[in-house]
């Protein structure tokens, strides 16, 4: 295997994998699905962004990775809808959603409580607010990059972010982060 690919992509994934996994987890309630779409998105990125020209294998820009994740999540949701329909038609028992894994790194009990409360609160946000919030706070994207990733105007991204913060604060008020 090409050393450039091996070292650069591994380093890139080591740095950005946590953010990408968090975004993937917010796109689905099932931990296994989140892991699947992360792997799927990484493979799509390698196929599309890696380039054999001049033997260069540069990792992709982070916004493109989030875009790939969104597309992978959408595709998975379509497949799951079809599968669920099939299973229901075939009298299969559809198992309950398994709980998502820990979304945030924690070392103390207090952090675990914060993490758990935050995860639940984020889960209650409308999807369009949640995506902007996660990409801005933990995804290291600018509003311009978020706008491109979510295919919305930058002003919309900024206003959704403000609404998301406000909504999240109201949800978390009893727990007060």
């Amino acid at each position: 295997m090409n050393d450039d690919l091996s070292s650069e992509w591994k380093e890139w994934f080591r740095i950005n994998g946590t953010k990408l996994l968090l975004f993937a987890r917010t796109q689905t309630n099932i931990e296994a699905d989140a892991q699947d779409i992360l792997q799927d998105a990484m493979l799509r990125l390698l196929k599309s962004y890696g380039s054999g020209e001049n033997d260069k294998w540069e990792p992709p820009p982070l916004p493109l990775a989030y875009t790939a994740l969104r597309h992978a999540a959408i595709d998975l949701a379509r497949k799951n809808t079809r599968r669920t329909r099939r299973e229901q038609n075939s009298d299969y028992l559809v198992s309950a959603h398994d709980p998502a894994g820990d979304w945030f790194g924690t070392s103390t009990l207090e952090e675990k409580e914060k993490s758990s409360a935050l995860k639940q609160a984020i889960g209650q946000l409308p999807g369009n607010f949640r995506d902007v919030l996660v990409l801005k706070i933990w995804g290291d994207l600018t509003f311009s990059q978020i706008a491109s990733t979510l295919e919305i105007p930058a002003n919309t991204a900024a206003s959704r972010y403000r609404y998301a913060l406000e909504a999240l604060r109201k949800i978390l008020k009893p727990n007060s982060l």
Binding site: M1, N2, L5, S6, W9, K10, F13, R14, G17, T18, K19, L21, L22, Q35, L38, Q39, M42, L43, L46, K47, G50, G101, D102, W103, F104, G105, T106, E111, K114, S115, L118, I137, W138, L165, L168, R169, L177
Partner: peptide
């Protein structure tokens, strides 16, 4: 509030998942 949110950082990618993804990338390559 934003700062308090940033205090929590995303959880590490599970070791098994990380290995699996890197392995699949290498295989695809």
């Amino acid at each position: 509030f934003e700062a308090s949110l940033r205090e929590l950082s995303p959880a590490e990618v599970p070791g098994a998942l990380q290995s699996q993804i890197l392995e699949s990338l290498e295989t695809a390559y």
